[in-house]
């Protein structure tokens, strides 16, 4: 199983906001034991979904060229239970962005019902800090693959309203990294 906690984006407005959806299925491993006889999507994974949607939105503000990691969940509140058969809609909005990080407000709904609210902080790991990890956490082609799977370039719009183009971003594999 891959660590993908959004299925696809339905909106992706660069530098502003995004909407992503995730269908919750009984075939997912975590639903088997959480809880026995009464499957509930764990709220930690709902948070991960919001964080992934927000993280890709923030990463775009740095042209998908540098690593962005979830640094802090400043707030997370949950109001209901998410069951198998539900579809989660994640809405993320960039509240604040700076050279070294960003803040995102996120919500998760099932239908019209608010399930979760969160305030998330992301840290940008640039060339200076990247070296602390010794090796890159993932490669540009892996990021490109993920962006493609979740439909970012199908629905994404740049700040001027024109469609995002994959070729606008440095997602090609460098020869040295192959």
């Amino acid at each position: 199983m891959r660590w993908f906690w959004i299925d696809r984006f339905t909106e992706f407005a660069c530098g502003s906001h995004a909407v992503a959806v995730k269908g919750v299925s009984l075939s997912e491993d975590h639903m088997h034991d959480h809880m026995l006889g009464y499957p509930i999507m764990p709220n930690s994974l709902v948070t991960e979904g919001m964080a992934q949607a927000g993280g890709l939105l923030v990463s775009e503000t740095y042209s998908f060229s540098e690593l962005v990691v979830l640094g802090k969940i400043a707030k997370a509140e949950f109001f209901t239970c998410v069951r198998n058969g539900d579809q989660l809609t994640y809405r993320v909005k960039i509240e604040w962005v700076r050279g070294d990080g960003a803040a995102v407000k996120a919500t998760a709904h099932v239908g019209d019902k608010l399930h979760a609210e969160a305030l998330l902080f992301y840290a940008r790991l640039d060339e200076e800090t990247d070296g602390l990890f010794g090796t890159r956490l993932f490669r540009p082609r892996d990021l490109r693959h993920w962006l493609s799977l979740v439909g970012v370039f199908e629905v994404g719009l740049k700040a001027d309203g024109t469609p995002m183009q994959e070729s606008d971003y440095p997602l090609e594999e460098c020869a040295a990294e192959v």
């Binding site: 640094g71 802090k72 400043a74 509240e95 700076r98 990080g101 803040a103 840290a123």
Partner: peptide
């Protein structure tokens, strides 16, 4: 990472 949060709140 808390310093980002603090700066965010001070700016606001």
């Amino acid at each position: 990472i808390d310093f980002l949060d603090i700066v965010f709140r001070l700016e606001k």
